[in-house]
């Protein structure tokens, strides 16, 4: 057992564990690099105001990314988050004159949870690939949004509602605070609760998880429900910030969300990932967008850089992490 002692001493020595952590969370290295580059390139970048902007801008995709991370560690995917967001946004504004602000918000949340539950149940019961189930939902839920809004943007009537989003704690907007709080909370769920550990076990080795008595179906339904609920949270925050509900709100956001999560390092095949990685991915994406805009680069650069970075991340992941797999 000489090998055993070397391995364990490696992972307990502080230097070794820092290296290991960085190898598994290389997104933070990348985030630091981008921050350094943009700080040098633009005097407006590293200011409190701009950082505050980045946090708020990143937080919307970030909240979606939290749910997506849960689902993805399970080895599944949810393409319907953008549409769920739009529905929650529309309901929370549209119902205000009828039942009041907070009940409307509650109904918005409920709609997200219900649709997530439907997705999860369909995946678990039918055995269909979640890509298909949620692709259908993406199309259909957008239809629901249009049925409800009738193609028009809904406007908020009670302007006190939009002021909720203007609550700041220092440089942190309510949205940013909520994102960070939720991310930390779900990191705790992942690392410290039965449900969280089940998520890894299911995504990692579904046979072993099943043999160990984990109820895989119920587990997946819960994660899809969480993902839908978080999408609704995002939609409600958007409604507070904008004061309007566009029927096309959140279109293609599911793609940005997947990009952020994968960029962070969470593996699409499941079993591997964390909220830390996702936070890194979300902020890297936000910094890239913000920095490139500050530099007055045309917006095509942003899109092209994003595509290139994503492929680079994939190649890096293949080179770094798949060594040990075989």
């Amino acid at each position: 057992m000489t090998d055993a002692t070397t391995t364990s001493s490696q992972s307990t020595s502080p230097f070794g564990s820092v290296i290991q952590w960085l190898l598994r969370n290389h997104i933070w290295v990348f985030l630091a690099l981008t921050i350094v580059v943009f700080s040098l390139a633009s005097p407006y970048f590293l200011t409190v105001k701009n950082m505050s902007n980045i946090l708020t801008q990143g937080a919307f995709i970030g909240i979606l990314a939290i749910g997506m991370t849960m689902v993805m560690i399970d080895g599944e995917i949810d393409l319907s988050v953008g549409a769920i967001l739009a529905l929650a946004c529309a309901l929370s504004i549209g119902l205000q004159p009828v039942i009041g602000s907070w009940p409307a918000v509650f109904v918005g949340l409920l709609s997200g949870a219900a649709l997530g539950f439907v997705n999860g149940t369909l995946v678990a019961l039918s055995g269909m690939h979640s890509f298909i189930v949620t692709l259908g939902a993406l199309i259909g839920i957008r239809g629901l949004v249009f049925v409800y809004t009738g193609e028009n943007a809904l406007m908020v009537e009670d302007f006190a509602y939009t002021e909720i989003a203007e609550v700041y704690l220092g440089p942190l907007s309510l949205t940013a605070m909520l994102f960070i709080a939720l991310a930390l909370f779900f990191q705790w769920i992942l690392s410290s609760t039965r449900h969280g550990r089940e998520t890894y076990a299911v995504g990692d080795n579904i046979e072993a998880a099943h043999d160990a008595g984990i109820n895989v179906k119920r587990h997946k339904i819960i994660n899809f429900t969480l993902c839908g609920t978080l999408a609704a949270v995002c939609g409600i925050l958007l409604s507070m910030r904008l004061g309007t509900a566009e029927p096309n709100a959140g279109k293609v956001w599911e793609l940005w969300t997947i990009i952020a999560v994968v960029l962070g390092g969470t593996r699409l095949q499941g079993g591997y990932g964390s909220m830390w990685m996702t936070i890194g991915g979300v902020f890297t994406l936000a910094v890239l967008r913000n920095g490139l805009r500050l530099l007055n680069t045309p917006n095509y650069v942003e899109l092209m850089v994003m595509g290139a970075v994503l492929i680079l991340a994939l190649v890096l992941d293949k080179a770094l992490n798949h060594r040990g797999d075989h």
Binding site: F131, L268, P298, Y300, V301, E302, L303, V305, G307, I311
Partner: peptide
Amino acid sequence: LNSLIVTLAMLSFLQGLVL
């Protein structure tokens, strides 16, 4: 590489190329 991510990256890249 994973086809979903590659073509998703391409989606973004090509949109940039359009602009």
